[in-house]
Structures are given as C-alpha cells and as structure tokens.
Lab assay of single mutants.
Amino acid sequence: GMDVRRLKVNELREELQRRGLDTRGLKAELAERLQAALSGPSSG
C-alpha cells in the first residue's frame, strides 16, 4: 500500500482532494485522514 507518512503535504492534499476529502489541517492530520481512507472500506 501507500505510505502516507512519506508523502509531502501537497501530495497528501492531492490524494485527499482526489477522494473528495478535506484538505485542511496539519500534515499529521492529512496523513491520518488519508490513511483512514485507504484502509477503510472501498466503495464503488
């Protein structure tokens, strides 16, 4: 899988935006949010 901790802030935001998620917050928050999205149930 993707290691969200290795991504830069702008990369985290890009991935979040692609999934329609909130791109605001600290890098740690963005990484946590993206990780949750990646490990969560895949819809679609």
Rank of each mutant, 00 (worst) to 15 (best):
S39D: 12
P41N: 13
G1T: 14
R19G: 02
R18G: 03
K27S: 05
G40I: 11
T23H: 08
R18W: 04
R5S: 13
G1H: 14
L12E: 01
V4G: 03
G40D: 10
A28W: 15
E29Y: 04
P41M: 14
R6W: 07
A36Y: 08
L38K: 03
M2P: 08
R5E: 07
E29Q: 10
S43P: 14
G20R: 04
G40H: 12
R33S: 01
E11A: 07
L26I: 11
E32G: 07
L7R: 02
E32L: 13
L12Y: 01
G1A: 13
S39A: 12
K27G: 05
R19Y: 04
V9R: 06
R18F: 04
Q35A: 12
L26F: 09
D3F: 08
A31L: 15
R13P: 00
G44M: 13
R24S: 14
G20W: 03
M2Q: 07
Q35M: 15
R24H: 14
E32R: 15
Q35K: 10
K8G: 13
L16D: 00
L7K: 03
G44D: 11
L34V: 02
K8R: 11
L38Y: 05
E11L: 05
E32Y: 09
R18E: 04
G20V: 00
R33L: 03
L7M: 15
L30N: 01
A28H: 14
N10W: 15
L30S: 00
D22P: 11
Q35D: 05
D22E: 08
V4I: 11
A31F: 09
G1V: 15
S43L: 13
L26H: 14
K27E: 09
G1Q: 13
R19W: 05
L12N: 00
T23L: 03
L30F: 00
E14P: 00
N10P: 08
L34R: 00
K8N: 15
D3E: 08
E14C: 15
E14T: 12
G40M: 12
P41R: 07
L21N: 02
T23F: 07
R6I: 07
R19E: 02
K8H: 08
R13V: 08
Q35E: 09
L30Y: 01
D22N: 12
R18K: 14
A31T: 07
S42E: 11
L30E: 02
R33N: 01
Q35I: 15
L38G: 02
E15P: 00
R5T: 10
A37V: 08
P41Q: 14
S42I: 12
G1D: 09
G1Y: 08
V4T: 05
D3A: 09
E29H: 06
L21Y: 04
G44T: 12
L16S: 01
S42P: 13
E15K: 04
G20H: 06
E14Q: 14
T23D: 09
M2I: 14
G44V: 12
Q35V: 09
L12P: 00
A37P: 01
D22H: 06
R19N: 03
E11Q: 14
V4N: 03
S42K: 11
E11H: 05
R6M: 10
E14W: 15
R33Q: 02
L34A: 00
G40K: 13
D3L: 11
R19K: 04
L30T: 01
E11V: 06
G44C: 14
L21I: 05
S39V: 10
L7E: 01
Q35G: 06
Q17A: 15
A37I: 06
S39L: 12
V9P: 04
D22F: 02
G20M: 03
E32K: 14
S39I: 10
E32T: 10
L7I: 03
P41D: 12
G44S: 11
M2A: 06
D3M: 10
N10K: 15
L38R: 04
A36G: 06
D22Q: 07
L26Y: 09
G25M: 02
K27A: 08
M2V: 11
E29M: 07
Q35Y: 13
R6T: 10
A36P: 00
Q35N: 07
S39N: 13
L34F: 02
R24Y: 06
T23M: 04
S39Q: 11
L12Q: 00
G20D: 04
G40S: 12
L12G: 01
N10S: 14
R18S: 05
K8D: 14
E15G: 02
S42Q: 13
K27N: 04
L30P: 00
G20T: 00
A28T: 09
V4E: 01
K8Q: 08
N10R: 15
V4L: 08
P41H: 13
G1C: 15
V9E: 07
L12F: 01
R5W: 15
A28M: 07
G25I: 02
Q35C: 15
L16T: 00
V9T: 08
R33D: 01
A31M: 15
L7D: 01
G20E: 03
K27W: 15
G25P: 00
R13I: 12
R24P: 03
N10L: 08
S39T: 12
L26A: 15
P41G: 13
E14K: 15
L7F: 06
R33T: 02
D22L: 06
Q35F: 13
E15S: 04
L21E: 03
R33V: 02
T23I: 08
T23N: 05
M2D: 06
L34N: 00
G44L: 13
R18N: 06
R13A: 03
E11F: 05
G25Q: 01
L21W: 01
S42A: 12
L34K: 00
S42W: 08
A31G: 04
L26E: 15
E32N: 10
A28S: 11
L7T: 01
G40T: 11
M2N: 06
A36S: 08
E15H: 07
R18H: 05
S43F: 12
N10V: 09
S39Y: 12
E14Y: 15
R18Q: 05
L7Y: 06
G25T: 02
A28E: 11
L26Q: 14
L7W: 10
L34M: 02
L26G: 15
R5K: 10
L26W: 06
S43K: 11
